[in-house]
Amino acid sequence: MKFSHPLLTRLSWLALIACAGGWFQPAAARAEATPEYKLKAVYLFKMVRFVKWPTNSFPAADSPLVIGILGENPFDHELDKLMNGTVVGGRTVVVKGMATATDAKKCQAVFIPASEQANLHLHLTALRTVPVLTVGEGTEFLDDGGMVEFFVEQNKIRFNINQAQADAEGVRLDSQLLSLASTVRQAAGKKEAN
């Protein structure tokens, strides 16, 4: 009897590699996003549907919509799972990790997690000249020139919007999105809504 069939041998190797890649890892054993970040991922995913970018922010007509994560990715694979194959405004959505703000300039939206708090000012200054939706955490994100900041209120994820900043960079936010925001900062002379 012969057990060493070439196909069988190859399949066993594939299974071994797959295991090593974490495909069959038990959930507890993996580095998993917290419930808070799961929700934030959903919000981020939904938010891009209510944003319009100037056409020149995409290299080509069929270019994907790129969401960049600066620094450490707190969503783990959560955002990837959500975005998998999603089409927003006729473009497939791609999630990419970004090392520097300069890299992130090519994105349409950038999430700056709280872990990048130290470099926040730098990042935002770098992104100020391009139409990139900047989403961050904490109550000072807008003060530093961010556009959308998530915060937790009564165990719920809420967000504030700096419409003046978005307008200045050519990122247009849907009024319905604005209406869902806790506060909306508008350009000087304009009344602050909510």
Binding site: Y43, K46, R49, F50, D174, Q176, L177, S179, L180
Partner: peptide
């Protein structure tokens, strides 16, 4: 008008 409210499951909105 309910696009965002439905998307974000915002019952209040």
């Amino acid at each position: 008008n309910s696009h965002a409210a439905l998307r974000f499951q915002d019952k209040t909105a």
